[in-house]
Write a protein that binds this DNA or RNA. Structure first.
Lengths: 219, 219
DNA sequence: ATACGTCTGTTGGAATTCCAACCAAAGAGG
DNA sequence: CCTCTTTGGTTGGAATTCCAACAGACGTAT
């Protein structure tokens, strides 16, 4: 566990906890680490989970997929991010999403029930952890609301502009990179990749943006 | 405040707190009540809020609206529900949604900063409140994910079926009522009302469902 | 160098949605 | 009883998206 200490220091769930306390804390929480290859499914939709995950290295995607393979990306989690915490906390009977690794990854798992309940050894981290967790879940809530803002737009063009504007604002610059390739962006915005590509070209021709690969500039 | 005690007992945020403790607690939290008429805006998109709300009577809708009046309903909050808590907790600078009353309503407001910080009078409710809040926000998270599941479907027909199936499952019966009229349902699913009405008729003619007003039956 | 896989942009016809308008039914209020 | 308002269903043409297929660019392995 020691080798992950630098990553763990940056995890928001552990914000406000001294570095020296981290390892004892993790042991108190009975945290476990597991390595995954690219493309493996971490949580299957339909199952019930008690633990949530933290990305130590690599990245995972939270996705919804229907019977016909239409895939929708709910979110992308990189190093330091949590996933599955809402479902684990509320003890959802049937997971409505899947979690898959989009690259080789190392993931840390923590049983949610250990977070809330003060443990036998009377660790006093719990209240801090719950506050941090509330903050994380609230932020995720806002990100989901944001995604709804994009996908609820009626046309591909509007979805693109809404998304790219938000990314530019986040980056604090009209020039920014996005974390998706074209297929992933289409899945995130719930549109056709080809129609989206066409719309991007139109926007480029109209002079409203420039792009190369996943680097964009709004004009 | 006393007249709301029966409602307050059912609010999940106060779960596990004795009835006798409720009024002192609210006073400690500096909670205030305000009455609204139908159609009033409670929180304006773009503003920054420190307090969240609890519906004591009536109902409010959380909506997104763009420059051209396209309206998207994020959620509908009835008696006992919270709204705005994620934005207040994380101190969002600019609210991406508006909150409007869809009927005459009485709303309770609580300053989020009073929740987390133990108060001078050393009330010991705070840790319970935060746990409850974490649960509420997690559930809302799941509801948002659910909404994304509906709206990420590509056709109006698929969106309808996904939504109605979920409602049927929630009701535990193939016969159930929905909390929306046609325009609201269209706004919730991000589709055209008229196209949706047409699709509902097709589904009825095909024998996959029956409906009258907001009462549906899946066959 | 060649072959292969992946990613991205383009295109054309089919399918779907959007939009505006209209009509009918039900309720509210006079 | 009549009128006004709200709600829900229908329709036809315009606009958009979907789908499938193809082509070019790039990187990697053989």
């Amino acid at each position: 566990m020691k080798k992950y200490i630098d990553t763990l220091k940056t995890v928001k769930l552990f914000k406000g906890i001294a570095e020296a306390d981290l390892l004892p804390l993790l042991s108190c929480l009975a945290a476990t680490v597991k390595a995954y290859e690219k493309g493996q499914t971490v949580f299957f939709s339909g199952e019930s989970i008690k633990s949530f995950g933290i990305v130590l290295s690599g990245e995972v995607q939270v996705i919804q997929e229907d019977y016909y393979g239409n895939r929708s990306i709910i979110g992308k989690m990189i190093t330091g991010n949590l996933f599955g915490e809402s479902f684990a906390c509320t003890e959802t009977k049937s997971l409505p999403v899947s979690v898959v690794t989009s690259s080789e990854s190392e993931l840390l798992f923590i049983d949610c029930r250990r977070l809330a309940v003060p443990c036998a050894r009377a660790c006093d981290f719990h209240s801090k952890l719950i506050q941090n967790m509330l903050n994380i879940v609230s932020i995720k809530n806002i990100e989901l609301t944001e995604k709804i803002e994009f996908t609820s737009k009626r046309t591909t063009r509007e979805k693109l502009i809404a998304y790219l504007s938000t990314e530019a604002k986040k980056a604090g610059s009209s020039c920014f990179s996005i974390p998706f390739n074209r297929q992933e962006l289409a899945d995130y915005l719930s549109v056709e990749r080809s129609a989206m590509s066409a719309e991007l070209s139109k926007l480029r021709d109209a002079g409203t943006l420039k792009f190369q690969k996943n680097r964009f500039e709004l004009l």
